[in-house]
Amino acid sequence: MNTIVCVKQVLDPEIPPAKFKIDPEAKQVIPPAGVPPVISVYDERAVEAACRLKDKHKGKITVISMGSAKAADVIKHAISMGADDGFVLQDPAFENLDSFGTAYVLSKAIQKIGGYDLILCGRQAADWGAGQVGSILAEILGLPVVTLACAIEAVDKKLKVKRMVSDGYEVLEAPMPSLVTVSSEIGLPRLPGGMGLMMARKKQIPIWKAKDIGAEPSQLDKAKAHTEVTGLSVPTRKTECEIIAGGTPGEAAANLALKISKLI
């Protein structure tokens, strides 16, 4: 089965919170120096889901990422995990697109690639986390969609998807092709093996511009954006933490117990 995975390169979410700085005017985050961007965690798990399907059913995994030319790194990462092919979608017209614009660009690239049985996206990006590109993409492509998958299997030309809900899970059956968004419950992504690292090292990642995928400028018009970020701020938390002391750790714990018993 052939899978297309959409991935995004994001600011490393594991940077220490104290190092998180923004430019409120530009409504952008200022990435700290010396911190390489990473593949968005959920997208990495989407790649993992694709690789697990490939392990069982063979087929081809194609990865696309819209972003800067550096996004080739995350494509290479996906290839090192087991993907076969990848493309970076980079064009000045693609910068700062909203979810609809992003989904539109991805849909054009996916149509160009064609021949897919499954499209995978992360449930949301680890940076702006709009949480809707996958669903909009499915609407554009006219595909059935299952969100928040924690396991995907292919059985008799159909997809069996386990979806997380708050008090358990549901098992859904979807036709092929469908679009599935993947949640972190799918499990830890694999560490790229030797073969994967080799493949990634050798692979050239082509860059597709707007004209390569036939993206209409009218669809990328920022004046027509569906949503706009009008403000960005780092919330100030004025919590004063009272450190409970004690001669020994046991005493401190007892003092805390007294405090707690009054709170509840």
């Binding site: 940077i15 220490p16 104290a18 830890l188 560490l191």
Partner: peptide, 29 residues
């Protein structure tokens, strides 16, 4: 590999050092 080894190696691969981000509270420079 042990999971702790995998976490370390993932950090090496993605972050260029073996110490997980939040764990260290610091940046390289």
């Amino acid at each position: 590999m042990p999971e702790s080894a995998q976490l370390m190696l993932r950090n090496m691969q993605q972050r260029g050092h073996p110490w997980a981000g939040v764990q260290s509270m610091r940046l390289r420079g």
